[in-house]
Amino acid sequence: MKQLLLQIFTWWSGQTVGTRFFTWRHGKRVGEDEFGNVYYEGPLSSYGLPRRWVVYKGYAEASAIPPGWHGWMHHRTNTPPTQDNYKPREWEKPHHANLTGSAQAYRPQGSLAATGERPRVTGDYDAWTPGN
């Protein structure tokens, strides 16, 4: 019952009932990435290009789409990575979703979020205070 209510009322925790019905009726499964996201292609859009969409595994986050699938989703290539034997270049790092706002987010040295306190200012800089 909980899953049914989530599908009816939320879009961020997987596909909704409308997306599930549209996918069942018009979608042709094209492939799946290493994260479990499933990619579909359907009828022509108003631009004359085939409509393409992804059903995310878990939370819907656009940065979770790997580079090869991103190019296919945005019509930069007509061949999906599953048919193209897409392999990242040797200089490319492994894909990670955007972690901003999470506990794993990047926090540079000196950031208040990294250590909880700001390091003391050194050198010839004096912090401005009102009344000086």
Rank of each mutant, 00 (worst) to 15 (best):
S111L: 04
S102D: 08
T79E: 09
V38W: 02
P80N: 01
S13H: 03
S45Q: 13
P67R: 08
K28M: 07
G110S: 04
N85I: 02
M73R: 03
G131H: 04
T23E: 13
K87Q: 09
Y39L: 08
G36C: 04
P108E: 00
W24D: 12
P94I: 06
L4K: 08
G48Q: 10
N85D: 07
T77A: 04
A113N: 04
R120T: 07
G14M: 06
K28A: 07
L49S: 12
V54D: 03
G31E: 04
P88L: 06
E34T: 08
G48C: 06
S111A: 14
T23H: 10
H74A: 08
K57V: 07
W69P: 01
H96D: 06
R51S: 15
L112V: 08
R76C: 06
P130W: 13
G71H: 10
N37S: 05
V54Q: 02
W72C: 02
W128V: 08
Y106N: 13
G18N: 13
A113G: 00
R25Q: 15
W91L: 04
A113P: 00
L4C: 12
R20H: 14
Y86R: 11
F35W: 04
E92F: 13
S13M: 07
T100C: 12
F9V: 11
Q83N: 09
M73F: 01
P67Q: 04
Y125M: 02
K87D: 04
R20Q: 15
A64M: 09
A127K: 00
N85T: 02
E117T: 14
A127D: 08
R51A: 12
D126S: 10
F22A: 14
H96Q: 14
T100A: 15
Y59D: 11
A127F: 00
L112G: 10
W12S: 06
T129M: 00
S102M: 11
T82P: 00
T82G: 00
W12K: 13
A103Q: 12
R29D: 00
Q7R: 14
W69M: 03
Q109P: 05
A62D: 12
A62M: 12
H96V: 03
Y86D: 00
R107K: 11
W128T: 04
Q109S: 11
V55R: 15
N132D: 06
G14L: 05
Y39A: 09
R89E: 15
L44E: 13
G131I: 05
P88R: 14
Q109D: 15
W128S: 07
H95L: 06
H95W: 15
W72T: 01
L4H: 09
H75T: 03
T19F: 09
G71V: 00
N132Y: 03
A114T: 01
S63M: 02
G42M: 05
G68K: 08
A114Y: 01
V121N: 02
T16S: 15
V54W: 01
T115D: 02
F9Y: 15
T129N: 04
H70C: 09
H74P: 02
R20Y: 14
A62I: 08
H95P: 10
A64C: 10
R52V: 07
A113F: 02
W91H: 13
